[in-house]
Design a protein around this nucleic acid. Sequence first.
DNA 1: GCTTGTCGTAACCATTAATGTTGCGACAGC
DNA 2: GCTGTCGCAACATTAATGGTTACGACAAGC
Lengths: 144, 144
Amino acid sequence: MSANSRLTIAAHALAWIGLYQRQGHEVATSEQIASSANTNPVVIRRLLGELRKAGLVESRRGVGAGWSLARELGSMTLLDVYEAVEAGPLFAMHRATPDQGCVVGHGIQPAMRGIYDGIEETLRSELARVTLEDVLRDVLAVPR
Amino acid sequence: MSANSRLTIAAHALAWIGLYQRQGHEVATSEQIASSANTNPVVIRRLLGELRKAGLVESRRGVGAGWSLARELGSMTLLDVYEAVEAGPLFAMHRATPDQGCVVGHGIQPAMRGIYDGIEETLRSELARVTLEDVLRDVLAVPR
DNA sequence: GCTTGTCGTAACCATTAATGTTGCGACAGC
DNA sequence: GCTGTCGCAACATTAATGGTTACGACAAGC
C-alpha cells in the first residue's frame, strides 16, 4: 500500500498543538510543528488547512499568528482526522471498466463494492474509538 | 489513499478461473482473464505469480498452458489474497524520523504503532471472514 | 502607515508505487 | 521443429505524496 503518512502527521500536529496549549501557549506555528515532525512548514500548513476545513483547528494571521485547536482533543477522533486528510476509498476498483459482456466482469464491481463497504465501515468504527486525547496520553506514556 | 486495485483484480482473476473451471475447463490463460478485467495479460501474470507464491493458484507452461486453482474457492479468504498482493502496512509513519528531543516527536511513533496494529488486526479479521466462494456467489447474484 | 512574522497558496521538482507495454527466452505438447 | 503460453526483464506512463521556493495577504505593534 502506498506509504501514506498523512494521518500520522496530522495526529502528530494535533497532539503537538494540544500539548503546547496545555503548557500555556496560545498558538503554535507551522514552523514549530514542522520541526518536531521533521518536515517542511508548508507540508504542515497544507495538512492543517484540511483540518481547519473539517473544523478541528483554527488559524490566525498577522504577527503572533499560528494554529490552535477548535475543540478539545477528547472530542476529536482519528476518524475525524482520517476523513479530513484521506481522499479516496481504501480499496480501488479496476482502472478500466471490466468487460460487461462477461459474467464476472459484469458482476465483480457491485460484488466487491458491497464487501468493501462493510470492511470500510468497520475500519471507520475502529478509528472512531480512538480520540486524540488517547493519542496524546499514549505519546506521553512512552518512556524516554 | 492511493488507488490500489490489486486486491480487486486478484479477486476478479480468482473468481474467473473458478467459474471457468466449473464450466469444465482445465486451465485459464492470462489473456482470457485480462480480457475480462480489461487490462494487460502481463499485469495478470504478475498478480497470479504472487498468488502462486502464496499457494493459491498453479500454472502450467507449454502448449495448453494456463492457470488453475490450487485450492477450492471456499478455502481461500480475501485475507489470503490481501497478504499475497499487498506489501506494506495500511498507515505509514513519518518519512523522516521525528525530533527525538521533543516529547511528541519521541512518543508519537510508538503510540501510533500501537493504535495502527490494533486497527490492522481488525481489518485482517474482516478480510478473513470473506471467502472467494462468497465473492463468486455475489458476482453471480448481480442482475444483468 | 511601516515593519514584522506568519499564514495561504501557487508553482515546480523529486520520489515512489502502480500500471501498461513490448520483447524475448523457456517450456511442453503436438 | 512449430506453436501457444508462461516467466521475466526493461522501459514508459500516470498519479499520489512530499519537499522546496516564492510571494502576496494579513494583522499586531510600533
